[in-house]
Design a binder for these strands. Structure first.
Lengths: 162, 162
DNA sequence: AAATTTAGTTATACTTTTGTAACCATTTAA
DNA sequence: TTAAATGGTTACAAAAGTATAACTAAATTT
């Protein structure tokens, strides 16, 4: 690897370390204020919305969330009637989770709620910047999803890939 | 605003909501394992490294961190001899914070520590993807920094811009 | 000079997240 | 058919972040 590549990677790390708190502050506060959910259970809604059905362990793997925490968060979502547990007939130890109809509808409106300020900010940008924002966020998301597939290390190794 | 723009913004929000947990999980765990600091105090180091000297309030504004939390985190960093308090001679209410020499050195090595896994992952990517990652993270960082300048709402309004 | 505002700290309570250990039920392996 | 491994839950502890009120000291306003 050349010296230039090394510097490029340094810059990437710098950028990511800067982006993280910007996103964090933008979302977590909206989530707390505008929903009665916490960020963790919202993450679970998001991956269920994307993946359909996931087992408890798969949720924990995808979110690097300890299994006891997954249980607690899913319990909350069940109380809210946003997800449901499904016993896997082929292996009755496995508990599969999926969004309910209410969960799907609620998640859509929550997304609108928590991104309201950010949406307004983005709308003030000129067309070119919005396009740049779209492309850069798409690319970053894709590559990060690709490389962030390492296992978690929580009570047991997580073998299944994201 | 056209329907296409609205969809583009929706996609941007989707992307950002996806990127956030990926970054979060990648950094916070490394920080906890590899340093004796918490993410919050590391954020403070980062903005001090970038901005030089900042007052307590400015730190709180930039990080959307409640002032009492800033005090607590800075206290920790002072115990570690990584930052120092400087009384502002023109206004003796203001407490300015800057990195010590040790703080600068430590921060550099901490950055290497906490980004080690991510760096290794990035190194496995081909040259084109690294370039894409660099460009997209740079662009995203720049635009997010630009739009995430809203005030915090913690005990008092934060007027100064980031 | 008195009243108000601002910067920061202290104290305190609460929420969220992380982590470990122990446990049950089920499946797989010996 | 025992023994071991796996998926998940329960219980519990601790770290980290969030929030508000009350306070001191200094600056500003009136």
């Amino acid at each position: 690897m050349s010296e230039g590549d090394k510097n490029t990677i340094d810059s990437v790390i710098e950028n990511l370390i800067s982006i993280y708190p910007l996103l964090s502050k933008s979302f977590t506060r909206s989530i707390r204020i505008k929903t009665n959910l916490n960020p963790g259970s919202l993450f679970i809604l998001r991956i269920l919305d994307r993946n359909g059905i996931l087992s408890m362990s798969e949720i924990g793997c995808k979110l690097s969330m300890p299994k006891p925490h997954v249980t607690a968060q899913v319990d909350k979502l069940i109380v809210e009637n946003m997800v449901e547990r499904l016993v896997d007939p082929s292996d009755r130890r496995i508990v599969n989770i999926k969004l309910t109809k209410k969960g799907k509808i609620d998640f859509e409106s929550i997304k609108v709620q928590i991104s309201h300020e950010m949406r307004q900010s983005i709308e003030t940008l000129d067309e070119y910047k919005v396009k740049t924002l779209f492309e850069s966020s798409s690319q970053l998301r894709e590559i990060l999803s690709e490389i962030m597939t390492e296992n978690n290390h929580l009570q047991q190794t997580c073998f299944k890939q994201l």
